[in-house]
């Protein structure tokens, strides 16, 4: 549905995005993850057409959105800052959305406002959580094919957060919307996303379904009679994550079963697999770098 092909973006002589490519399918949720300052928001804004790519192409149903800007009527971008809403009432904002999105469903908007118990007074009086809910209600009431959410659950309490995530999965299940979410909350995205895109220094490091990503890496705990056998330290796809006493935590990356057999051939006193989370993959792939420059 949406194809991002070889996007590059340079802002003030600094290359922010390098050769970004991925695609999104209707009815799926994609998580965009990466450290602060790696270009997540820039990617969302580029798809939304707020920023133009320096080179590369974004197509929606095979039409380039640079050449056919009217195609942008098929997506909504929800910024992580909701300050701009302040001086309006929800109905005024809805009118603005109606004029932009001909598919906007005002009846749905009203019913969602009452489902989430949002008052129809000036948005300035809203709490942070209410503003975030309103922005997401507006986006899904627009009945577009693609919703871009920039850190939608930032700073929300656990109950509101759960309501918003529930609302997102329902919309995807019923209306076949595609959703792209940038987030740091890996445990949330792990359960709701079909695929994740991991960014590092403005480049795509990994695009995979959550299950594939978890299958590519296996974390094991192993104890050997002495030190870690040299044959294993020479294996390129084994990384030592940590060592406490004689207990090694090892990460195996690809050719899992062969490597497992290699370790077993060294007669470990203990060898057991530890479940991987998306957070482990994130820390392993991105943790070694210096902090954001």
């Amino acid at each position: 549905m949406l194809n991002v092909r070889n996007i590059n973006k340079t802002i003030e002589d600094k290359k922010v995005l390098h050769d970004i490519s991925f695609s999104l399918t209707a009815g799926t949720i994609t998580g965009l993850i990466g450290r602060n300052g790696t270009g997540k928001t820039t990617i969302l804004k580029t798809i939304a057409g707020i920023l133009d790519p320096t080179s590369g192409d974004i197509t929606f149903n095979n039409l380039s959105i640079q050449k056919h800007p009217s195609e942008k009527v098929n997506f909504v971008y929800v910024s992580d800052s909701t300050q701009f809403l302040n001086s309006y009432t929800p109905n005024e904002i809805a009118k603005l959305y109606i004029s932009i999105y001909p598919t906007f469903d005002f009846e749905l908007f009203k019913s969602l406002m009452s489902r989430f118990q949002l008052p129809l007074k000036k948005i300035r009086s809203y709490s942070k959580g209410m503003k975030a809910q309103l922005a997401i209600i507006l986006a899904f009431s627009s009945r577009v094919s693609l919703v871009l959410l920039d850190e939608p659950t930032n700073g929300l309490d656990p109950i509101v957060k759960r309501q918003i995530l529930q609302f997102i999965v329902e919309e995807v299940a019923v209306h076949n919307v595609a959703v792209l979410i940038s987030t740091h909350h890996l445990n949330e995205i792990e359960q709701i996303a079909d695929q994740v895109i991991l960014l590092r220094d403005g480049k795509v490091d990994l695009v995979a379904s959550i299950e594939d990503a978890k299958e590519r890496y296996v974390k094991v705990q192993a104890v050997f009679k002495n030190e870690l056998p040299e044959r294993l330290t020479l294996q390129e796809n084994i990384t030592v994550l940590g060592k406490i006493g004689r207990v090694y935590t090892l990460l195996i990356n690809d050719s899992i079963s062969q490597t497992y057999a290699l370790i077993e051939a060294e007669h470990p006193l203990l060898l057991e697999e530890i479940p991987m989370t998306l957070e482990d993959i994130f820390v392993i792939l991105l943790g070694g770098d210096d902090y954001v420059s």
Binding site: G27, I29, R162, Q166, F167, V169, E170, A173, Q191, D194
Partner: peptide, 16 residues
């Protein structure tokens, strides 16, 4: 339904 269960468990509808 798929919608109800995915919403209840807050998981991806395609998983359900």
């Amino acid at each position: 339904s798929v919608r109800e269960l995915s919403s209840l468990l807050v998981i991806n509808p395609n998983t359900v």
